[in-house]
């Protein structure tokens, strides 16, 4: 399977920012500082289970349901 990570990261950014571009940029920066660069994942990226878990944990800490 592929593309799950990109979708999860996009959901986090959309949910955290509510569509505000400043907040979307800030959330992207926070994710990159956590070692998850949304720009490095595409719809074709493998669903690496370790990365999927990491993204899921981050979402939970941010109070976001994926």
């Amino acid at each position: 399977m592929a593309g799950k990570i990109k979708k999860m990261l996009d959901t986090i950014i959309a949910s955290k920012s509510g569509g505000n571009p400043t907040l979307a940029a800030a959330t992207t920066t926070k994710l990159i500082l956590k070692g998850l660069n949304p720009n490095k994942f595409t719809g074709q990226s493998d669903d690496d289970p370790a990365v999927v878990d990491k993204v899921r944990n981050i979402a939970a800490e941010m109070g976001i349901k994926l």
Partner: peptide, 11 residues
């Protein structure tokens, strides 16, 4: 910083 950044959008 990581933990506080998770719970808020304020700078």
């Amino acid at each position: 910083m990581d933990a506080v950044g998770n719970v808020t959008n304020i700078n």
